[in-house]
Structures are given as structure tokens and as C-alpha cells.
Amino acid sequence: MDPENKMIILSAFKITFPVLLGYIPLGIAFGLLLSGAGYHWSYALLMSIFIYAGSVQFISVALLVAGAGLTEFLIITLLINLRHSFYGLSMIARFSDAGKFKPYLIFALTDETYALLITTELPENVPKSKFYFSIAVMNHFYWVAGSILGAVLGSVIDLDLKGMAFVLTALFVVLTIEQYYHSNTRVPFIAAIGAGGISLALFSPENILLFSILIGTLFLAVYEKIARSKNISMSTTDQKEWP
């Protein structure tokens, strides 16, 4: 193999390893749920390849069992995944030169892939889009592999993976701490604590993520507006900062 590709694959594997440990048991749980509801494993495969969105896939199983209509699937999917639109906002510049990889990178933008892509330092002499693509493909592969494993084998062998999905919580904690050290503002962290706390207390589990992102973003917008008007009134002589 070309040494550059080998380097890309190795460093992407190292970065995605915690996601491997998280996606395999979660995928198994999804596969188990779907096969437990009486569906053939090939549906787990199709869903994990083409939908590739954890929470929506879990909820879809519940809706399938309930015999929900297509409109319900559509609305619930849009609402639950609306948060991904916020992820894309941070990726417009990063993906702008991704060329042929761009459609796939957009398609594969899950919570975990987003978290890795915005925090990962690009290794030296490595093309960015290829590196991003490797990370995205590996995560997608772990998810598909876990789903099939759960749907095919999960009912046969007795795996005690209880608690293993906590690896993703730990990953988010670590990435947040790293962001804290690299950031010169504390505002986003305060916004997150406020929005997350309020949402945990007030909203049902399936609504928490979207509502906390909406509340947090609203807080950031209001803060930004106040900070801006203060800055303008205080420094009317210095217009360079605000063109």
C-alpha cells in the first residue's frame, strides 16, 4: 500500500477507536431490537447503511412495531435529526474543498463523526478531505458491522456489553475538556450547561438533544448581540473591528 494511505488509515483508526468501542455495542443493541421485533437482519443492514442515524433507527423500530404511517416517520426523523443542520454549519468551511468526498462527508455526519472532525488535528502532509473521509467511513463501518452482528448473532450468544456504550459519553467528556483548553471564551460552556440542565429537567429523552441545541444557540445569539452593541457603543472610535 502507498505509505501515505497507510499513514492516513492508521491515524484515522487510532482516532476512531473509541467510536469503534461505542458503535459496536450500540449497533448490536439496534440489531437485537430489530430482529427481536421479528424483522430479517437484512433490514438492519439496509437501515444502518442508508439511514446511519442511531437515535432515529431505534425510534423507527418502535414506530414500525406500532405500524406508524409515513408522515409520522418523516416528521419524527426531521425533528430528531434537525440538530445535524447545526453540525453542518461548522463544516461548511472545512468541507469546502472536499471535492468528490463532500456528498459522503455530509451524509455521514453523525454526532460522533462531527465530534471527531471538529476536534481532530490534521496530521502533517496529509490531504484533509481524504483524512476526513477515512474517519467518516470507519465510523460508518463500525455502525454497520455492529448492527449486523446484533441482528445475526446477538440472540445466539450471550454478550454482557451493558455499560460499554458509555465509551461515547467518555469520548464527549474528553473532547469537551480539550475544547475548553483550546478556547479563549467560556460562553459556549455556560450556554451548554444551562441549556443541557434545563432540557434534562423539562423535556422527554427523545427531545432533549434538539431542544438543548436550540436553547443554547438562542443564548449564544442573544449574548453575541448584547456583546456587540456594548462593544460598538464603547468603541465608536475604533471601527476596524466591526466592518
Binding site: 454549519l89 469537551t176 443554547g216
Partner: peptide, 8 residues
């Protein structure tokens, strides 16, 4: 947004 979303 990124640091806020990570903590959320």
C-alpha cells in the same frame, strides 16, 4: 457551536 454542542 462546536464546544457548546460537545458539552450538550
Amino acid at each position: 457551536l462546536p464546544p457548546m454542542i460537545l458539552l450538550i
